[in-house]
């Protein structure tokens, strides 16, 4: 053996307090290292209990790449598993988001107009969050609803993760539109406004109709703004439009908090 588990780590391991990824290293190492097993037996619990813990850890399959990345990024292992079960945080969804963004960026570069990009970018987080929770796409929804973890908490954990992924990808796409300055970020506040409005309304209208209506309203607003356009920038992407988007995001966020208990009950067809 070229290395051994640190004594402090072994003590934490024996108390069940060692967290991944250090825990994974210790598990793997202890199987092959009699010396560390002997130290483990001395520092805390009985050898039998240590073996039982080790057995249980070895039975646990190695988490997937996404989950391992989250843990290495500092996310608690149980939160990482909740996120790994989020339907839209999967390659197919993320691939679709990237495809849409790439197409809109290419369109912006070829036409010189960023309107398509600014119009589409806010819809992606809205759709992502809508698809991350609910009976339609979450296969474990019914089991999740009757679990002690409050539905709103699970929704928020997933929303933050999906928003972070969506905003990061949108941000990367923005970097591909140089020369626009802050104008290229004009999709950000509308994205937050649409997402929070979609969530707040889904408490009453359900996880399909609410985001569909909000998305439709956004498209309608852009069509009207285009028809009455006075300057070179559509109204929602002007300073005044951004202010309204911020206000809508704040109001919808407050409403969402007020109706949070509705996410603790089944939202699908009841029969």
């Amino acid at each position: 053996m070229t290395w051994h588990v640190d004594a402090e780590d072994l003590r934490a391991y024996s108390q069940g307090e060692l967290s991944p990824p250090a825990l994974w290293s210790a598990d793997t190492h202890l199987v092959d290292c009699a010396e560390c097993r002997a130290v483990l037996a001395e520092v805390g619990e009985s050898v039998d209990a240590a073996w039982e813990r080790l057995d249980a850890e070895l039975d646990a399959p190695r988490p997937g790449l996404f989950e391992r990345l989250l843990v290495r990024a500092g996310v608690a292992d149980h939160t990482a598993r909740l996120l790994a079960a989020t339907p839209v945080l999967r390659r197919s969804w993320l691939g679709a988001v990237v495809a849409v963004l790439v197409m809109s960026v290419l369109a912006a570069q070829s036409t010189g107009s960023v309107t398509l990009f600014l119009a589409l970018a806010p819809l992606l987080p809205l759709a992502g969050v809508a698809l991350s929770y609910g009976p339609v796409l979450d296969p474990t929804y019914e089991m999740a609803v009757v679990s002690p973890m409050h539905g709103f908490r699970l929704l928020m954990i997933r929303t933050v993760a999906v928003l972070a992924a969506g905003l990061a990808l949108g941000g990367l796409a923005t970097l591909a539109l140089p020369g626009l300055g802050l104008r290229a970020l004009a999709w950000l506040l509308p994205a937050l406004a649409l997402t929070s409005a979609g969530l707040a309304l889904s408490a009453r209208l359900g996880p399909v109709l609410a985001p569909a209506l909000v998305g439709g309203a956004w498209v309608g607003l852009l069509v009207v703004a285009d028809a009455v356009q006075a300057g070179s920038t559509l109204l929602p992407f002007t300073a005044a439009g951004q202010g309204v988007a911020a206000a809508v995001a704040a109001l919808a966020g407050g409403l969402l908090f007020l109706v949070r208990d509705r996410f603790d009950r089944f939202q699908g067809s009841a029969a």
Partner: peptide, 21 residues
């Protein structure tokens, strides 16, 4: 294992060692 572990987390078993056992 991952699925039952996932439901165990929803049931508030956050201690990894106890949960895996």
């Amino acid at each position: 294992f991952e699925f039952v572990d996932y439901v165990a987390i929803l049931k508030e078993l956050t201690d990894r060692g106890a949960r895996h056992r």
